[in-house]
Amino acid sequence: MKTLVTFFFFFLISFAAQAQNNTPEVKVETAKKEVVAPAAEKESVARLYRFKNSRIKKELSFKTSRGSSKLA
């Protein structure tokens, strides 16, 4: 009995899924825009560090004299 109910339920769901109305595909219009190169900019100097965030790591890695443990 359980198999018959399951079989009936399976076919009922499959037929209901096929009966759905399919909506037509909507096409999107694309707009073309040209890329304009920027005017010649003034040359600027940038510093290059060997390691990323080296200045921040240096300042965050400080140690205080009270931070170390003393041996008795």
Rank of each mutant, 00 (worst) to 15 (best):
M1V: 06
K2S: 11
L4V: 05
V5Y: 15
V5C: 05
V5K: 15
V5R: 13
T6M: 09
T6A: 10
F7T: 05
F8Q: 03
F9P: 00
F10Q: 05
F11N: 03
L12I: 06
I13Y: 00
S14A: 00
F15N: 04
A16Q: 10
A16S: 08
Q20E: 06
N21E: 15
T23Y: 08
T23Q: 09
E25C: 10
V26I: 00
V26D: 02
V26F: 09
V26Q: 10
K27T: 04
K27N: 07
V28N: 13
V28A: 12
V28E: 13
T30N: 13
T30V: 10
K32N: 12
K32C: 08
K32W: 03
K33P: 02
E34W: 00
V35L: 15
V36S: 00
V36W: 04
V36T: 15
V36M: 05
A37D: 02
P38D: 01
A39D: 07
E41A: 15
K42R: 08
E43I: 10
S44F: 09
S44E: 14
S44R: 14
V45Y: 10
V45W: 14
R47D: 10
L48I: 15
L48E: 11
N53Y: 01
N53T: 00
S54M: 06
R55W: 07
I56K: 15
I56T: 11
I56P: 02
K57D: 08
K57I: 01
L60S: 10
L60D: 12
L60P: 09
K63L: 12
T64Q: 07
T64H: 02
T64M: 01
R66T: 10
R66V: 07
R66H: 06
G67L: 01
S69C: 07
K70F: 08
K70R: 05
L71V: 12
L71N: 11
A72L: 14
